[in-house]
Structures are given as C-alpha cells and as structure tokens.
C-alpha cells in the first residue's frame, strides 16, 4: 500500500491534470469541426479525457 501522503499528492496531481484538460486553452484546440470515427472532435475529446482522468484515479487508488 502506498503511504497516504504520496497517494494524496498523486491524486492532487490528477486533479491538476484534469483542470488542465477541461479548461481553456486545451479545450479550445478541440473546438473545431471535423469528426473522429464519425464523432465530432470536441465530444470525442471530452469523453476521452474524462475516461483518462477516471483511469488515472483508478490506477492511483487501486495500485498497491
């Protein structure tokens, strides 16, 4: 088990990464027309980034 201190810091890092993902200016890069596998770029990006953040959370929490 990782010590609570380290775990807390890793989670704060995930939080900051999430803040970066879901804010200007990164968000504006994907605010454009075009599609990825038929899905508009912006929607694809938002859900993908969301999934990545959740995955990182799970990784930090479940790693022993």
């Amino acid at each position: 088990m990782i010590t609570p201190g380290i775990k807390g810091q890793q989670l704060v890092a995930v939080f900051l990464l999430g803040c970066l993902f879901f804010n200007y200016p990164l968000l504006s890069l994907f605010n454009q027309s075009g599609t990825v596998f038929g899905v508009p770029v912006l929607y694809a990006y938002l859900f993908l980034a969301w999934g990545v953040v959740i995955g990182l959370l799970a990784l930090v929490i479940e790693r022993r």
Binding site: G8, L11, F15, F22, L46, W50, V53, L57
Partner: peptide, 18 residues
Amino acid sequence: VGFLPIYIGPTLMMALWW
C-alpha cells in the same frame, strides 16, 4: 456540451476527496 461541467466538476473534485 454545456451540460457536461455539472458532471466533470465532481470527477475533478473526487480526486481531491482523499
């Protein structure tokens, strides 16, 4: 996508719940 922040916010907050 205007409805999404209502659900992305809690996801971010969850990271700070620890």
